[in-house]
Simulated assay, not measured.
Amino acid sequence: MPGVRARHMARHDLPRVIAIENEIYSFPWSPGNFSDSLEAGYDCWAFDDGSGALVAYAVVMWIPDEVHLLNLSVAAPRQRRGLGRAILEWVSADAARRGARGMLLEVRPSNLPALRLYERSGFERIGVRRRYYPAPDQQREDAWVLFRRFGAQAGQGEQGGHDSPEVGGMR
């Protein structure tokens, strides 16, 4: 995936972020969710293709000694090519380098591609949040709570950190 770089998300990225969000999710985050995340000082990452075109993003909230991955999304045309995994590993390495002991996230049990990604990345199911997500016909879907403990090597190597904006060997 040559040419993908990480940078801090900025307000001017929000129209593209929201467009991607609306394109790929039946129940997308609202513009206010993204704006509030920026204002709260969460780690909001934008990933561009080198020409400045935003192709993915991630939102990470720090809790005392771990991080909570709130959103990791890849534009539809770039999905199923390993970009999500590369971003997940980059975000994990960045958090580990900065002192996080692990990462927590919620995922829909019906989101099989995401579940495969997280399982292959070492996440384990630690709980369930009942009726967490909106679903069709005014229903609610549970969320599986997953956690990945970072190992000693998670914060090392060429994938992580603010000093290295390359994502998973991608520029």
Rank of each mutant, 00 (worst) to 15 (best):
G102S: 05
D36T: 11
V60Y: 02
E124A: 13
L105S: 03
S35I: 03
I24N: 10
A135D: 14
L72F: 00
Y57G: 00
S92W: 05
L112K: 04
N111S: 10
R120N: 15
V55E: 08
P64K: 13
A135Y: 08
Y42E: 10
E89R: 15
A114P: 01
R81V: 07
Q79L: 00
R97N: 08
E124D: 06
P136V: 11
Y133H: 12
R125Y: 02
D43H: 10
F27K: 08
W62H: 11
E119L: 14
E124G: 12
A53D: 14
I63L: 13
G99T: 09
A114G: 02
G122W: 05
D65K: 09
Q79K: 00
W90C: 08
G82A: 05
R97K: 13
F123D: 05
R78L: 12
A114F: 11
A95F: 00
Y118D: 06
Y133D: 06
S92A: 15
M61E: 13
P64N: 12
G32Q: 14
S37Q: 08
R120G: 14
W29Y: 15
R129Q: 13
G41H: 12
N71S: 05
G82I: 05
A100C: 03
V128E: 09
V60T: 14
W90H: 12
V128M: 07
L69F: 09
E119H: 07
S30V: 12
L105C: 06
W45S: 05
G122T: 08
A56K: 04
F47N: 00
L69K: 01
G82L: 05
Y132F: 15
S26K: 14
W62M: 11
G52M: 12
P31N: 04
A96R: 06
P134L: 11
A40S: 15
H68R: 13
G102A: 03
P136T: 07
E23Y: 08
W62D: 01
D48I: 11
A56W: 07
E89K: 08
R108E: 01
V107T: 05
L69Q: 02
I63T: 10
A96H: 06
G41A: 02
Y118G: 01
G84F: 00
A58W: 04
F27A: 14
G84V: 01
R78E: 03
E124W: 11
V91T: 13
G99P: 09
S30I: 04
D43A: 15
A96T: 10
L54K: 01
R101Q: 05
D48G: 05
S121W: 15
A76K: 14
W62E: 06
A96Q: 08
Y57V: 04
R80N: 13
R120H: 09
R97T: 02
V74W: 10
A96L: 06
D48E: 12
G52V: 12
V59M: 13
R98H: 11
L104G: 01
S121A: 15
P109N: 03
G32D: 14
R97I: 02
W29R: 09
S92D: 10
N71G: 02
A96F: 09
P113Q: 13
G41V: 06
G50K: 12
S30M: 06
P134F: 10
W45L: 15
D137T: 05
S110A: 12
R131S: 14
F123I: 07
N33R: 08
L70A: 08
E124P: 03
